[in-house]
Amino acid sequence: MIIRLFGPMAAALGVDRLESGPLSDTEGVLAWIAERHPTLADLCRRSRVAVGDAFADGPLPPHTAEVAVIPPVSGG
């Protein structure tokens, strides 16, 4: 699965995407990142996950190939 990163999260790691094995839910996505990048654990706790053009919460649709992690936003 491709995990797209944005804003402070991408800047912290110096990459805009990570590649994981299959993950079944949004909590698993955030936990996967936090486990491998402990400096992002706090940011992960305050982040959401999106699939396509919508936020997701809970189980991911079967065969989801790409998700986006959405840290706290600051537009407007």
């Binding site: 944005f6 804003g7 840290p71 706290p72 936003v73 600051s74 407007g76």
Partner: peptide, 24 residues
């Protein structure tokens, strides 16, 4: 929009430092 629009702001200051902002 302040709560949900996926946009991130990075400010640059006069001393050259930068900071990614979080929503208010």
């Amino acid at each position: 929009i302040k709560r949900d629009l996926p946009v991130w702001k990075r400010e640059t200051y006069a001393d050259g430092t930068t900071v990614w902002m979080e929503g208010s």
